[in-house]
Simulated scan of single mutants.
Amino acid sequence: MQRVLFITSTRIGDAIINSGVLDHLVRTRPQARFTIACGPLAASLFSETPRLERIIVMRKKKAGLHWLDLWRQTVGLKWDLVVDLRCSVTSHFLRARQRRILEKSKIPIPKVAEAASVLGLDAPPDPRLHLSGAVRTEAADRLPGDGPWLAICPSASWIFKVWPAENFADFIRRFTASGGVMPDAHVVMLGGPGDAVYAQPIFDALPQTSFVDLVGLGLPETAACLERCRLYVGNDSGLMHMAAAVGTPTLGLFGPSDDRCYAPWGEHTDAVRGPATFAEIDGAHDDRREHPESLLADLTVDTVYDAAKALFERTA
């Protein structure tokens, strides 16, 4: 038996981006058992990993003491392979036959490709989430029949990355209208705990639209529902990367984040932004994270509609 320690991200989106590397290891090391170290938000994403031995949840502590905790929990074993996508010092102080520690790219490249470089892979493996039969059965109950289902996530980790709610409402109205691309489609509203504040203005603006409100649903359950959707449109967020990873045609909305690095990955995906480049938006603000409003104001509904229509038709 081989033992592999896989150290991945705290953030949901980054953990999903890194999941292709984990899946590559699962497929190419059939004798290996896996221990996965990640943050609490991402932990449930890995619960169905084949031959999973343990998930170590790293809860952030002052002065980086969570890394000391990880060392204490892993130093007693001899690892056949340690793969560290967090670029940590801890990996150097573990007993390992092989260790692969990510070196971040100095130029903007897709984060999926950057993650694959830790193993020297020329063709980056697609992100992949392993889901149980139980969550897929629950998803079929939540989204019965053939739909069609249009998935929308109007939230993001920061307000400056959020397309305005009135734009989402206008897009949904037009896209699901009788003459739209998905006439009479059911709209699946997604988001994390506390994201109802982003969804409610859209509900209020579209009282006649058929919504399925799944805001706050668990990550594996959300992924299984996304598998059943015909199209996903949403901000740059973890759920955008999740939609792409489960094979749903995915359109990511960008502005103050770099689509060269964080665009959804795969042939069934696309990213769209307004006329301002990431560099222009970034250069206009000392600290985007302090900005109290959306920085996607230049991304029009027409632009998103046309991009979503093109993606829908390309993936028919």
Rank of each mutant, 00 (worst) to 15 (best):
Gln2Trp: 04
Val4Cys: 08
Leu5Ser: 03
Ile7Thr: 06
Ile7Gly: 01
Asp14Glu: 09
Gly20Glu: 01
Val21Asp: 01
His24Asp: 01
Leu25Arg: 03
Arg27Ala: 13
Arg29Asp: 08
Pro30Val: 14
Ala32Met: 11
Ile36His: 06
Ala37Asn: 05
Cys38Gly: 07
Ala43Trp: 09
Leu45Pro: 07
Ser47His: 13
Arg51Trp: 09
Glu53Trp: 11
Val57Leu: 13
Met58His: 04
Met58Asp: 04
Leu65Tyr: 09
Trp67Asn: 03
Thr74Cys: 02
Thr74Trp: 05
Val89Leu: 15
Gln98Ala: 07
Ile101Gly: 04
Ser105Asp: 12
Ile107Gln: 12
Pro108Gln: 10
Ile109Ser: 03
Lys111Glu: 04
Val112Tyr: 00
Glu114Asn: 05
Leu119Glu: 09
Ala123Ser: 11
Pro124Gly: 02
Asp126Ile: 04
Asp126Trp: 03
Leu129Tyr: 02
His130Met: 06
Gly133Phe: 13
Val135Leu: 08
Thr137Ser: 09
Ala140Arg: 09
Asp141Gly: 12
Leu143Lys: 01
Gly145Ile: 08
Gly147Pro: 01
Leu150His: 06
Ile152Ala: 06
Ile152His: 08
Trp163His: 04
Ala165Thr: 03
Phe168Asn: 00
Phe168Lys: 00
Phe168Tyr: 15
Phe168Pro: 04
Asp170Ile: 02
Phe171Arg: 00
Arg173Phe: 11
Arg173Gly: 07
Thr176Trp: 07
Gly180Leu: 04
Met182Ala: 12
Val188Ser: 02
Met189His: 05
Gly194Ser: 06
Val197Ala: 15
Pro201Cys: 12
Pro201Ala: 12
Pro201Asn: 11
Ala205Lys: 05
Pro207Asp: 12
Thr209Ala: 15
Ser210Arg: 15
Leu214Lys: 00
Leu214His: 02
Gly216Val: 15
Leu219His: 12
Thr222Met: 01
Thr222Trp: 00
Cys225Val: 10
Cys225His: 01
Leu226Asp: 01
Glu227Asp: 10
Arg228Gln: 07
Arg228Val: 08
Asp236Pro: 03
Gly238Asn: 08
His241Asn: 12
His241Leu: 09
Gly247Val: 06
Gly255Tyr: 02
Pro256Ser: 11
Pro256Gln: 11
Pro256Gly: 09
Tyr262Ala: 13
Trp265His: 03
Gly266Ser: 05
Gly266Thr: 00
Thr269Glu: 10
Ala279Gly: 12
Gly283Thr: 11
Asp287Cys: 12
Arg288Lys: 14
Arg289His: 14
Leu295Pro: 00
Leu296Cys: 07
Leu299Ser: 03
Thr300Ser: 15
Val301Cys: 10
Thr303His: 10
Thr303Pro: 08
Ala307Gly: 00
Ala308Asp: 02
Lys309Arg: 05
Ala310Ile: 00
Leu311Tyr: 08
Thr315Gly: 02
